[in-house]
Design a protein around this nucleic acid. Structure first.
Lengths: 221, 221
DNA sequence: TTGACATAGTGTATTGTATACACTAACATG
DNA sequence: CATGTTAGTGTATACAATACACTATGTCAA
């Protein structure tokens, strides 16, 4: 039992985990097995521990609930509506993470069918204020796509320019001119050709590229 | 005495209050009269109450500690280093506020010389991790200056284009071409001429402008 | 009253960036 | 070896950003 002279809220982190799967922007949800919102889908997340920072808490939840580590993770916004959790006062520091498609090993966490990927356009109704969190994360993601190299964080180690273009087109939901796209991406000077080619199907193979600095996200212009 | 089954951190809001004063970007600090960091300057802020949202908490602190209300106030970032406060675990949700120069009535809060404005370049050493908070607030401010109409929030009801240009030049610390500045500002279609002129000194008077929607901050382009 | 001074106010030419657009190259397969 | 499919490439045009200098309107002092 912990005692304080004045009331303290609980603090949690909730994480919007984005990936590109099946040509769609998807995110990871967890089915709640406890009240409140029992049976509803919710963002992965959990309570802050006293000996970890907020970043560490988010990374830990990402690891525990989705089996994912060492990916792009950024603080999004802090949500503090008074009744956002019916049990007690809970402040949620929201994060979002980007997962490259090759890291998609959903470790089913504790239990199998309780974790799932959902397309942004086919989201179920969510617990708490998680819809609002998702919306804000999507806004941030689309904004950053246009003024940073954040999209590279969705890519596996080696990728083709067409694959990269697909990521942009899927997230922004608009067609991009192939030549202009390649011109602007190469102008960033963030990726280099590898010696490898992607051979797939009955057509010309594509050059594979890789990031010069895999973890670095640059703000451009 | 409040009791919980597991430990809860304290939650505070801290506010970086910017204004333009004496041709400089300045911010409001408060001298601490309690330990820890007794006698050091710190950002205004305080503990979240159970019945108020984070935004309300920040607005309340702004009012209580600086006597300022009804100004631009935006959540900045949440700071959660484990030992950022030596007393107990404290999560700080940082905000920043922009004060028009005409609202500068520093109500000395509880007591006189404990509140002061400091130029960004002449800041004293600050308590806690408040230097880090200030730095991030300044980054956000300069970034938003270039892609939103946030700078208008520094202006009084009526202002001249030269005064507005000065605000940009002071914050960005660079000279701006007068004709290009006026062209781009008027292109935003956010301000209109008033019938008034500012007569001051031995020279041609300047037209006074006002915001079409005083509270609105637009993201541009 | 008028000349000197100080800031307000205005337009255009040039440069750089973003966009639109179509054909050839290289592979697999039948 | 013809067909189908995706990879890969350059240029002309439109638009936006920048550089740049003179006239206008007031006050004040001689």
């Amino acid at each position: 039992m912990y005692k304080y002279e004045y009331p303290h809220p609980a603090v949690t982190t909730d994480i919007v985990i984005f990936t590109i799967r099946d040509e769609r922007l998807q995110l990871l949800l967890i089915k709640r097995r406890e009240t409140p919102y029992r049976g509803k889908w919710a963002l992965p997340g959990g309570f802050l521990q006293m000996k970890e920072t907020l970043d560490e808490c988010a990374a830990r939840e990402l690891e525990e609930e989705a089996g994912i580590s060492n990916v792009y993770l950024e603080q999004l916004y802090t949500f503090g509506a008074v009744k956002r959790d019916p049990r007690e006062r809970v402040i949620s520091v929201a994060y979002y993470a980007l997962i490259p498609s090759n890291k998609l090993a959903i470790r089913p966490s504790s239990d199998a069918d309780a974790v799932g990927w959902f397309g942004m356009k086919e989201l179920p109704s969510l617990a708490f204020d998680h819809s609002e969190i998702v919306e804000r994360a999507y806004e941030r993601l689309t904004a950053k796509l246009t003024y940073s190299t954040i999209a590279f964080q969705f890519m596996p180690m080696e990728f083709t320019l067409t694959e990269l273009q697909n990521v942009y087109e899927i997230i922004l939901q608009e067609d991009i001119d192939k030549r202009n796209f390649r011109k602007s991406i190469l102008a960033l000077d963030s990726i280099v050709e590898t010696k490898n080619m992607k051979k797939e199907g009955a057509h010309r193979p594509a050059k594979l590229y890789k990031l010069k600095n895999p973890k670095q996200v640059l703000v451009i212009k």
